[in-house]
Amino acid sequence: MKNNNKTLKSGSSGSGAARGLPPKSTKLTESESRDDPKTLRAKPQFFYPPGGILIWMIIVVELLTFTAGLGAYAWQRSLSPEAFSISQSTLNITAGFINTLVLLSSGFFIAEAVYLLKKGRVRSSLHRIAISISLGIAFLFIKGSEYSDKLSHGYDLTHDSFFTFYWLLTGFHFLHVLTGVVILSVLAVKIHKGIYNHDNYLDVETGAAFWHLCDLIWLMLYPALYLIK
């Protein structure tokens, strides 16, 4: 981190050369220009969404998977609405609501973290990521308490159709949040070490996109499982 700062300061006040970029006067070749994410970001191109195409392919597949799962859940519920309603009434709607606020706030902080990193405000960016990680852990804790409560009352995966869907859908999402917390922690360490900065932030954008995916999935799960009866 210190070495990087020295390198930046020793250059001509943060010039392109000091940051590993070609001098402004040097024209990029066609292939160089094509491969530069910043050049590609100028015009919206299908293959270069924020965070890279790979994460967006994952996001689309994941959203489709959860939509299919929730569609199957809604179809099953339409076949035996009373049985589903009885099981659904055991869920803690307020805990789900708090978890919604927790994830939305976490998403807000990670969006700010990416923005601040792009602006070169590494310290502020790290603070936001730390808050996001803390909120992610809070989500896991609240959901874990809910799981513990359900298990203590015998509402496990095999209890009935509703709880089979509940455990599969929320359990899969729980694993996503857990993975997201690990990804954000790794990104925070690498930002702290100076590996990611205002010139090299694509991986941070990708990690943030994965974290927002957790938001999106929960935004679908909460009304479908907890609210619509």
């Binding site: 969404p49 924020p50 998403g107 990670i110 943030a208 996109a209 927002h212 938001d215």
Partner: peptide, 11 residues
């Protein structure tokens, strides 16, 4: 979330 937080409005 998609348009603002994930910056997809310019995608």
């Amino acid at each position: 979330v998609v348009l603002v937080f994930m910056e997809m409005k310019k995608a």
